[in-house]
Design a protein around this nucleic acid. Structure first.
Lengths: 203, 203
DNA sequence: CCGCTACTATGACGACGGTCATGACGGACA
DNA sequence: TGTCCGTCATGACCGTCGTCATAGTAGCGG
């Protein structure tokens, strides 16, 4: 777990702490201690200060989420959009049942704490979300979802997942996550063969 | 705007600042200044300190969101679940197009910054979400959604909305909000007459 | 041994936050 | 008038945080 260099470990630790405590409540000294890295390395590897560290952590999280999607797809014997989403959700329910509801999504945490940094934090979060979304959209098209619907459906999946994570953490229950997965499943699978949008009210 | 007493103004201002900057980045002095209230009133009205103030702000937000649902329903000439959700989304797109993407949901902000306070903050956020969810679920049943689906669908609506708010703020675009509304609409309306779950893969 | 570079170590500074202590104002009421 | 109490006003304390400055160590080519 965690890359070999101290630098990578610090980025990884930053992402972990941010996703648990938020950006503002995560201190640089804390990151160094968590990564078992010397405090002096902070200003050496991250001359841009906390902003740079947070941005790299967010970017790392986006890349991680994107890669994870492809791995989910490969692991499923008979992949469908609903099963992919169920797998994405399961990643969270598993963690919550194993380690408690301590952590959320680091990108979401960075988005909420926009005021702390300049626009660069927002851009990093936006890039992370787009990376994740395009990965999901690509997976959907691979599963037979028409190109026009893959993007919006990917956005819907990630939005629902992020929101359900919030609810789950607040109520300390995976209920929201499982319900969202169950309710969204049929809609996602119904988009595979359907040529146009929805069923009736296209608008 | 804002109640008459200084106390209510402070709770309201706290909610506004929290939803913009997050819990950690919002200072007590800042809240007092924003509410045009004397700093000395903080320790008088909120002897429980910041924790109490934040919890009351979160509770206020939950109550506000719940009432808002009923008002949306009443304002719609021919209400359907999809139209209700579209109205909930529109509240955010309108604000974002008018005032910029400055603010998010205060309850989400409080949920992300769990570490700052004890469990009471989490309970306040949970209560706020529950209040909001039950209001939406009640509206859905009024619109003809079977009792068994109203709760999960309400959770899905709020999850998607919260997540889309995150995406919208990150990319400074209402795209995610409108796409989620459009994609979720048919599913919501299809639940009105359908007795069982989804269309095919019930489980 | 020198100089150079990458990395580590540590202390200090300035700013800000939440909280507390203390006191002042201003009606209400006897 | 004197006293009480809700409200407001400030200044101080103490901790933490991000950042900077400075110095130390380790390895290496010359």
């Amino acid at each position: 777990m965690s890359g070999r260099g101290p630098r990578e470990r610090m980025v990884f630790s930053a992402a972990q702490l941010i996703r648990r405590d938020g950006v503002g409540a995560t201190g640089m000294r804390e990151v160094a201690a968590h990564a078992r890295a010397p405090r002096g390395s902070l200003q050496h590897y991250f001359p841009g200060g906390k902003e740079q560290l947070v941005n790299e952590a967010v970017g790392w999280a986006g890349r991680y989420a994107g890669k994870r999607v492809a791995r989910f797809l490969a692991a499923l014997p008979e992949p469908t959009p609903a099963l992919l989403f169920a797998e994405m959700v399961r990643q969270w329910t598993d963690e919550y049942e194993a380690d408690g509801f301590a952590g959320g999504c680091p990108v979401a945490a960075a988005t909420v704490d926009l005021a702390t940094s300049t626009d660069s934090a927002r851009e990093a979060a936006s890039a992370a979300f787009t990376e994740w979304t395009t990965a999901v959209a690509r997976a959907l098209t691979d599963l037979g979802v028409p190109a026009g619907r893959a993007g919006p459906l990917a956005t819907l999946m990630i939005s629902s997942l992020e929101g359900a994570i919030l609810l789950a953490r607040a109520e300390r229950s995976s209920r929201a996550l499982t319900e969202v997965s169950r309710e969204l499943g049929p809609l996602l699978d119904s988009a595979v063969t359907a040529p146009g949008p929805g069923h009736a009210a296209g608008r």
